[in-house]
Design a protein around this nucleic acid. Structure first.
Length: 461
DNA sequence: TCCTCTAGCACTTTTGAATCGT
DNA sequence: AACGATTCAAAAGTGCTAGAGG
């Protein structure tokens, strides 16, 4: 695995200020990524998003859906998503709230989900929403399907990488930009802990319609075993708390009013957010108890995101902060400044695109990609990068492997990374890049943060 | 005993092949 | 023969539940 230090030399040192401001011919406006369904994400985030992980793999809900702008129309890009641990802790659900339950388990093999359209022209990415619907999460460390492997009862958030690269083989030498959205952080679970989350999922996920009260599944609900209900009644935070959901004290004072008419309340809640920012995270209760101060449980989620080092943390996954900020903007205020017309979360990067990389042949994105050249159909590299094993044998799927100088054996299709011990420790370079990222002094709003660094300083390769 | 995880269930949506009509 | 619309079954995606296992 190539160290960050090595990459640094290839990258000619810290990101020069000129990269941001230099009169490069390919200095494009800015890459902007916005999160769709922001309100929905926020609704979940207020309560404390949980994502089910299963052995065969489970989709996320809400699923990640973003919009991109500011790309070079005729240059090719690759979009990637990976999951980053929020901190170095394991959590447990106890009495209506999440509590730290110990140190995190060793990080499972790192995997990155490649958007199946990758690589595609900038125009392709910008003409429509980019959905990561088929991204799946698993807790099976031996997973052969290329799903993203997570630990249950640990917190993560997705990172979106935009890489300007003609193909997957050149990704390695490419510079990419990374975006994160605070609203998308979640706790991986094998079974829902918070009934409010369950209800939200049922209410919003079409596949769960059958569990809605007004749905057709009355028979099933009517047949619930009374004994079972009684048993579950003894458990805190389980189903039968429906009646007290909206009034349960000490639970982040959620604005969740129960799930009747939930959708209709979204707009209303949006306004309320502007006032009650402290309830924005269900981790607030823990903060009050002083359980922990440098985990999300103990710190304002906003702050975490505004100070977080986007370069992967060391094995312990302690948030590595190269830069300390003052109190980050309140969710409400920053929301207002970052929500686009459609109410999306967004973050705008103003770093020049990869074309400004001195080592990058800036002439390449030129005519060779532009002009009458038809937009290539989505090249299904999913068989290579993500759905590897599952699809490798299918017709029409490119079945080659990606070359890896670090492992001639391992099919890089899985983007599997080294064991946790191989994660690089905090490195000056990472700090450099973070500094670079934050030195632009953007108003990050409440949502996105980006960084730009040589690809796969992370563990995937 | 508690907590976490898993398998099977009933339900829904999605997908793709087959059929039909123009 | 080609194309589009419709139908239908299979596949896939949900949360629920009981029970296993550490």
């Amino acid at each position: 695995m190539q160290s960050i230090r090595e990459l640094k030399s290839n990258f000619s040192g810290p990101p020069p200020a000129s990269m941001a401001a230099g009169p490069d011919a390919y200095l494009q406006g800015s890459i902007r990524m916005t999160l769709e369904d922001l309100e929905l994400w926020k609704t979940f985030h207020e309560i404390g998003t949980e994502m089910i992980i299963t052995k065969p793999g489970r989709r996320m809900f809400p699923h990640c859906k973003v919009n991109l702008s500011g790309l070079i129309q005729c240059a090719k890009y690759i979009l990637l998503v990976d999951m980053v641990p929020e901190d170095g802790f394991r959590y447990k659900w106890n009495k209506e709230k999440w509590e730290v339950a110990g140190k995190a388990e060793p990080q499972p093999p790192c995997r990155t989900y490649l958007h199946p359209d990758s690589p595609a022209l900038g125009s392709h990415w910008m003409k429509q929403s980019i959905s990561f619907l088929k991204l799946k999460l698993t807790n099976n460390t031996l997973d052969q399907h290329g799903h993203i492997i997570l630990h249950s009862m640990h917190r993560y958030h997705p990172r979106f990488h935009v890489v300007q690269a003609d193909d997957l083989f050149s990704v390695r030498w490419s510079v990419f930009q990374t975006f994160t959205f605070p609203e998308t952080s979640f706790t991986a679970v094998t079974a829902y802990q918070n009934t409010k989350i369950t209800k939200l999922k049922i209410n919003h996920n079409p596949f769960a319609k059958g569990f809605r009260d007004e749905g057709t599944n009355k028979k099933r609900r009517a047949n619930k075993n009374p004994a079972c209900l009684e048993k579950r009644a003894k458990l805190p935070g389980v189903l039968n708390e429906d009646s007290k959901d909206s009034s349960s004290p000490g639970f982040c004072q959620s604005s969740y009013d129960g799930y009747d008419g939930e959708e209709g309340r979204l707009a209303k809640r949006k306004d309320e957010d502007a006032v009650k920012e402290e309830r924005y995270s269900p981790w607030g209760a823990e903060r009050q108890q002083g359980v922990r101060t440098d985990s999300p449980a103990g710190a304002d989620t906003r702050e975490i995101y505004n100070t977080e080092q986007l370069v992967p943390a060391p094995a312990s996954y302690q948030p590595y902060r190269a830069h300390e900020y003052g109190k980050s903007p309140s969710p409400s205020s920053s929301v207002g400044s970052s929500i686009t017309g459609s109410g999306r979360s967004s973050f705008e990067s103003r770093v020049p695109d990869i074309a400004t990389d001195p080592d990058h042949d800036s002439s390449k994105p030129g005519p060779s990609h532009c002009g009458p050249q038809p937009l290539p159909g989505p090249q299904d590299y999913s068989g290579v990068l993500n759905m590897t094993m599952a699809q490798a044998g299918k017709p029409g799927v490119i079945g080659h492997h990606i070359y890896s100088p670090y492992s001639t054996e391992q099919p890089l299709g899985q983007w599997s990374g080294p064991g946790p011990a191989q994660y690089p420790p905090p490195h000056p370079l990472t700090a450099d890049y973070t500094t670079q990222a934050v030195h632009h002094g953007y108003h990050h709003g409440n949502v996105g943060e980006w960084s730009q660094y040589p690809l796969f300083s992370y563990s995937c390769w």
